[in-house]
Design a protein around this nucleic acid. Structure first.
Lengths: 347, 347
DNA sequence: TTGACAGTTTGGAACGTTCCAATTATTGGA
DNA sequence: TCCAATAATTGGAACGTTCCAAACTGTCAA
């Protein structure tokens, strides 16, 4: 256990050159002679020298660190998002501070401040509920690139990568209409978020477009979780004019809805159509396999990271708003497979 | 968008004091006069000064950064683990580099090297499959505290926090025996990992203890995923002397096993007992609710982080091996609820 | 008036790197 | 032989902080 840190000066002394030369070797400069480079390299390995990046940054003030703050890492959608970012950040030779805000705006503010003190070059933020433009303004004004992902913050002029919730929800509803459903509910999610609003409007617009009922009672909000889905579907089942299908705010809600339906002896995908949103990994292997709007969170994460790195490398930049397109993945829970079977029989 | 960074000297000039005084204020020293402190504080806010922690670390060489490297963030067990660490690291005023190794030992080595260059004070590692003691030796020898979590690396003398897989597996098997099962399988997981080995030995030992068959054919390994569970249960169903219950390597495998059983018109929790391992969040709300060995990953994460911080603060330390105890959470998939119902009828 | 002392404040060196300008060594052409 | 050009190396200042030793203010007792 040797504690003493080896510096560039120690290496220089041992190799019989100046610290400047060692520095050049470290940067892979073409100025230095091949023999010297080899000698210095050998000494570096021998002494177990580790480069001190903070010291370097102090001089050149451009760090290779980005910040990533996510509202809920235990949610697999956001975990995938984070993994996507991780991939491109890592392969660009950057390293990330990464923190979970647990939907707590205060904690989020703290970690962002801390990351700033540690000298991050840019931030990717999947904002906690309740994040305001004012929270982020000082950071943005300081000229550090910020990319918002998955959720937007109204009134803030920064780059963002969000999915096309409106189009996705509308496509899902149209699919249910094609399958013959005429009374469709929207289940789950907190109705004070922008994402909820967007998806819900997609749902409404598609119903109105088809000349169908899109009244408020068809929108049942709840926590955007599996438990929330159970609760929401219970309220749905208690309705007088009961819907025959539902579009859910996200996949967690959809799973919960399936659980709730089963408890009531209603088989999802057979007696009732269920469509989720997000296409989390479990959607494919669940029983029944979940029909859902796929938003490829890893891809979104990758795009967000690419955008951030682009803005870091460009000296100045204009905010860019990317909308990740979305596609309906038809599996079993909507009842499409069931209908095909039925048609095969009647044919 | 003001780019110029404000330094302690700028603050000093604006407040009409020396940089030393500003530094004292920043550190909350009791030496400085109340009026001066207030004045400096005001100027700091006014100029939008942000503390440069790298510069400070350069001088005092003790950073408030820890590294966290996780083998698979998309797996909710490890995501929970990370969130637990995040909690205690954050509230101790530290910030974390966090990276996903995606089970790739090379990538893992790269990010660890990068974190080291950036000056981390300690590392929590949930090692990628195939990590060797040699990979970690240089880091450990340099005196930086390392805590291994969830998985151990044979031959490396560092602290670790792992769950008691042997006891957990044995408890699960005993429960199945109590429910009357006499032929029990072990499903899923790669058989070249230490975790697999430990759980499998717990399984075997409990069977042997009861004087039952614990032969190799009862152990069916596969990928530790939902798909792996489906595959494993298919092989189980093809056996001549078919088991009536199974302990699964983890919850993902258990879910897969349930899916596979259902496809074969066998109802898990009624016709067949299934027990998982890990108690991921979905276990509770799944249908049937999964009986599983709960290892509280968040708690493990918290303990690992606490251990690391303790070692960072103590100048020197001895490696400590923590074994997180484990408890069987009886829900529906094992058939216990079913048996109680049956007993109520016969009574 | 002086000195001791506590309460505050301060200049400057140090941390490990980069980068500029300057220096030295080497080569080749006239 | 000398000069110019090129190749390789180098010393020292700078980055933004901390920390030490020293210095300045008052106050109070002698």
């Amino acid at each position: 256990m040797k504690q003493s840190k080896v510096t560039v000066v120690d290496v220089a002394r041992a190799a019989g050159v100046s610290k400047s030369t060692v520095s050049l070797v470290l940067q892979g400069s073409s100025l230095v002679n091949e023999a010297t480079r080899a000698k210095v390299g050998a000494v570096i390995r021998e002494l177990g020298y580790v480069y001190n990046r903070s010291a370097a940054n102090l001089r050149q003030s451009k760090s290779k660190i980005v910040g990533i703050v996510v509202n809920d890492l235990t949610n697999s959608f956001f975990a995938e998002l984070a993994v996507g970012m991780d991939m491109v950040v890592q392969s660009a030779g950057y390293i990330q501070f990464m923190a979970n805000s647990a939907e707590n705006a205060d904690r989020q503010a703290e970690v962002i401040a801390s990351m700033r003190e540690h000298g991050m070059a840019g931030l990717i933020l999947s904002p906690a509920r309740g994040t305001t433009a004012a929270d982020l303004r000082p950071l943005v004004d300081s000229g550090i690139p910020v990319v918002l992902v998955a959720r937007n913050v109204p009134g803030l002029k920064v780059s963002s990568v969000v999915s096309d919730g409106h189009a996705g929800a509308a496509a899902a509803v149209r699919h249910l209409l094609e399958l013959g459903h005429r009374r469709i509910a929207f289940l789950g999610g907190f109705n004070d978020t922008a994402v909820f609003d967007e998806r819900m409007r997609g749902f409404r617009d598609a119903l109105v477009e088809a000349g169908l009922d899109a009244s408020d009672e068809l929108v049942i909000s709840s926590a955007p979780s599996r438990a929330g889905g159970v609760a929401a579907v219970e309220r749905l089942l208690a309705m007088a004019d009961r819907p025959t299908a539902a579009l859910c705010f996200n996949d967690a809600v959809a799973f919960g809805a399936c659980d709730g339906l089963r408890s009531a002896r209603i088989e999802p995908g057979v007696d009732f159509g269920v469509i989720g949103f997000d296409d989390v990994i479990e959607a494919k292997t669940a029983v029944p396999a979940l029909t859902t709007v796929s938003v490829d969170p890893q891809g979104m994460g990758r795009r967000a990271a690419q955008l951030l790195l682009k803005q870091i490398n460009a000296g100045s930049f204009e905010p860019e708003a990317l909308v990740a397109s979305v596609r309906l993945v038809v599996r079993e829970s909507c009842g499409a497979a069931q209908r095909m079977k039925r048609e095969a029989v009647t044919a």
